[in-house]
Design a protein around this nucleic acid. Sequence first.
RNA 1: AGGCACGUAGCUCAGUGGCUAGAGCGCCGCCUUGACACGGCGGAGGUCGGCGGUUCGACCCCGCCCGUGCCUACCA
Length: 876
Amino acid sequence: MDPENLPKHFEAGGAEVRWDDFWQSEGIHKWEPSRPRDETFVVDTPPPTASGSLHPGHVFSYTHTDILVRFQRMIGKNIYYPMGWDDNGLPTERRVQNYYHVRCDPTAPYEDQLELAPASAKMRKKPPKKISRDNFIELCHRVTTEDEKTFMALWKRLGVSVDWNEQYQTIDDNCRRIAQFSFLDLLEKNQVFSSNAPSMWDVDFQCAIAQAEVEDRNIAGAYHDIEFGLSDTGETFTISTTRPELLPACVGVTAHPSDERYKHFFGREAISPLFRIPVPIFPSEIADPEKGTGILMVCTFGDATDVEWWRDEGLTLRQLVGRDGRLLPADFGSQTFPSLDPVEAEKNYSDLEGKTLKAARELIVSLLREDSSGFDGTRAALVGEPRLLEHSVKFFEKGDRPLEFVPTRQWFVRLLDKKKELIAKGNLIKWHPDHMRRRYEDWTENLSFDWCVSRQRFFGVPIPVWYPILENGNCDYKSPLVPKKENLPTDPTRDCPSGFTEEQRNQPGGFKAETDIFDTWFTSSLTPQISSHWGSNQERHQALFPADVRPQAHDIIRTWAFYTIAKAHLHEDSVPWKHATISGWILDPDRKKMSKSKGNVVTPIPLIDKYSADGVRYWAGSARLGVDTALDEKVFKIGKRLVTKIFNASKFVLTQDGHSAKPSSELDLAFLSELRSLVRRSTKAFEDFDQAHALMEIENFFWSRFTDTYIELVKVRARSIDNKNPQDQGSAIFSLRFGLSVLLRLFAPFLPFVTEEVWSWAYAEESGFKSIHISSWPKDAEFAHLETPNETTSLSIAIAALTAINKAKADGEVSMGRALERLVLSGQASDVDKLRSVAVDVTAAARCENYEIIIDDTIEKGSFQVKNIEFAPKPT
RNA sequence: AGGCACGUAGCUCAGUGGCUAGAGCGCCGCCUUGACACGGCGGAGGUCGGCGGUUCGACCCCGCCCGUGCCUACCA
């Protein structure tokens, strides 16, 4: 090749666009449905939340996956690598609310042709505009469509080799169909049920949430000691509570059965202060004598334990907290709120009604301080002062106020009875790294609620259910009406159940639509089935399910991984995938998790502009799976340097134009033998899902055995113009070109752009593979016909000799290119012997014609010393 | 509170039951050579978190401890 035809520098930005266009137009990443399953590699790609912001974590984990995929493609696999968009759900709703400054109000009328502009600062000062459910959903679609373009541009820029023909959105027709199909299948299997029971409720979003979305936060609270009385003898005892505002909802009192202090109370009745409500006192094994005063009040509902006691003891329901987090009206003297003194109770409650929990707490504490607040009206009920403490409280992960248990009708998937089976399924999956399996097991073992899948939100997959309305106007929730599977997807607020007409909607004798939608995870737990078109294309399902690999980060093992395993188990008694590859988190330079809420997120695009896509991929590729990794620009720099070096070294190798011959020189054979070993090691690492190790091996070899050494040693022989010895020159040229071809292919999964660029110069035509990415991964067989070197260490020996000479030149402060007039090199006898067969290359590289090699057994084995050196004069 | 992971050169990280523990970056000195100054050559730098144990031999295996991060639990 004429060096004049090759560019001076690698223009990464241009190459990234050029090669992505080429891959798309040539269909390099296209899945071929006709090829058999065992030749196919199926990826269950994480569908990003398109309305979220671009994050280096995306770049990181998608690059991990792409590296694996590109390796699999090169070993000949037919790749199924789709891209999904998880636009369904709360993040999109919030983005729409903020972007347009609107709120969904299901009672608002639909506005045809509603055109809204992004909200200005001025508009934001006014209350948000109320828009109908349908208008709101339209805006959600509009926003996600735009956001997906941004993400797609990032993936293409990064060289993520997905097949863009295989895209889905978790809200599209196929996904809605599959989510609803999943629900109907679970209903048939009796694995899903609706229940009107206290469940975890976020008072701000006014929505039920599932255990997986709960996080514990340590917040400040206080023990309040409150005196209760016994109805019969007037004895007293003191309970401790962090939630005094729930006193009106007290439905019982409990202590440990063996607690001597309280044993004699069991079976009797306590009277609460302020409201004078008689409640049963019962023993409970789970009451902790060490905590507080050892005896406590049970309320509906302060926490999950209250729910347990309420259910197990069959206690009265005194629901106090409304869906909006404010105290509901209470009718003292009624059956629900019996009071020994309804007038007094009513008076005490009058100011509490309608208050938020926080305000109610302050107010009730001041009431409890009053002299007549005690159970018999003779003294204050509050004992001492509240004692501050920090305790952990359950929050919705996206929420601002603690969760409440509110009785509401919700749909649940039955999981609590399947912990063992689910853990067994987890053991059928190979986790990378393996210890991530423990996260899954811990979570599964500790499940304490069935999966609540209904959400009182708007943008999501509708739950495909109607309820009959009885002639008396009541809803029959026990006998839901469901659509036929072939009629999915359906929207019960628009479609009618079969056998009914639209006129019967919301009429006695007619039906009522379920307006709740599914938890987003209900749909995204089906991504392998979404890819495989489960339920509508059995042939495709067989070909693509289970997937080969599920890539994801470790923070969503409890959600995405867990739910996906659960669904595959429930539906088909299967695992969803064979391997789970778990990427770590991205940490900022202070080693804090990079997250939107912490405000320390860096946008990835400028990093790509600065360090090139290959440079950024190098950073991701060098991190082991499961290891949290700092976003360290030093590593990007190293990547970029590697890209440049590959480009330059390739330029040198491919411009050596002499004819190629079967390698015969000892140095060349030793180099090729080491290369063969590299191919074995890096292939093994890839097969073990250890791409970082493969990269390290390849990179080390490239610098220390190829560019810095072998190329320098063989340079003179390869470019000798006079052709004194065509066989030696041909041997060098073959080894350089073949060596480069192997190294490029090893690098290709990591650095797809620069390797493709170089491949296109000569190898594409030579090999017949138009893209390096569909050429073949280096195989042991490619080395089989080569002779073996006399000494496996010949390259090392040559390098050691050259290093000694280089050191002498460095010490003499002359350039490495300075010619030598005389050189005496010494080493151990065995090393000297080995050096003879490569000395011609060493001395050529050192620019020395007059040399002598002597034996000195005092020198360390494997190294050489310069005994005498004379530099030629500096050329003018 | 239990579990998992991690703790190796100033920084980011490799590493193996076996001779004097490695790389890159950074630092110091030198070199503009014909692929590359978006470079090259050379150099300095570590009691491998601590204490015990197993072993002929431990950075590696075991136990305890310390520190960091995370997971799960705790929620009166």
